[in-house]
Design a protein around this nucleic acid. Sequence first.
DNA 1: ACCCAGGGTCATA
DNA 2: TATGACCATGGG
Length: 219
Amino acid sequence: MDMVTHNLPRLFDLLLATYGPRHWWPARSVPAMMAGAILVQNTAWTGAAKAVARLEQEGALNSWTGLLATPEPQLWEWIRPAGYFRVKSQRLLALARFMESFGDHEQLFRLETAPLRTALLGVSGVGKETADSILCYAAKRPVFVVDAYTRRIFGRIGWTDPQADYDTLQQFVMQILPEDVDLLGEMHALLVEHAKTRCRTKPRCSDCPVSFCAERHAV
DNA sequence: ACCCAGGGTCATA
DNA sequence: TATGACCATGGG
C-alpha cells in the first residue's frame, strides 16, 4: 500500500461531502435502467432520459417481448433524442432477445457475478461499462463502473496512466475501496457529478471543492 | 461553427 | 494488441 492508494478513500469522502449521495441509477424499474444503460452510451444523459421516458410512455418497457414486437422505425422515433438511434435500436432489441431467453431479470440475476458479467458481455452492444453498470445498479453487485471521467480525473491527479485501460482502472479502485455495492455505485456517480459540475464547466478551477483538484489545478 | 456527451463494434495492421 | 472509422442528437 503506497501513499497514492491511500488517497482514494479520501477522495470518496471529499466527493460525498461535497455533492452528497447521488443514489444512482435514476430509473423507475430494472428494464428502464438496462435500456438507459444502452441509450446513454456516448451521449448526454438529458437525451437518453428523454428516450427512456418515451419508451416507458409507449409501454415498450413493460415486457421484453413487447419491445421485440415494436417495428424498428417506430423505435427510431421513440429513441431519436438519445442519438445513434439506428445503432441503439438494434442494441435494445439484442438486449430484449437476450432477456427474453431468461424470462426476466429475476432469472438472469440468479447467476453469480462473474458468469453474469460474461453473459451480459455476450450481448451485442453491451461492453464493459454497460455490463458493469447493469451489474452494479440493477443486479446490485459490488462492481466499480469505469468511464471516461474516471480515466481523466485519475490521470490528472496522477494516480493512473492517462492511457490506462478499463481493467487497470477498475482494479485500481476495487483493490482499495471496500467491496460494497452502494459505496462503489456512489463512487462512480460522484465522479460523474464532479466532472459535470466542475471539470467540464470550470476546467482548471482554482476554487475546486475537492482538494485534489485544487492541488493539481487541473481536475 | 465547434466540441463533446455517463461507448461499442467492426475492419484493418 | 492497438488504432481508426463509424454511429447522431442536442446543449454549451
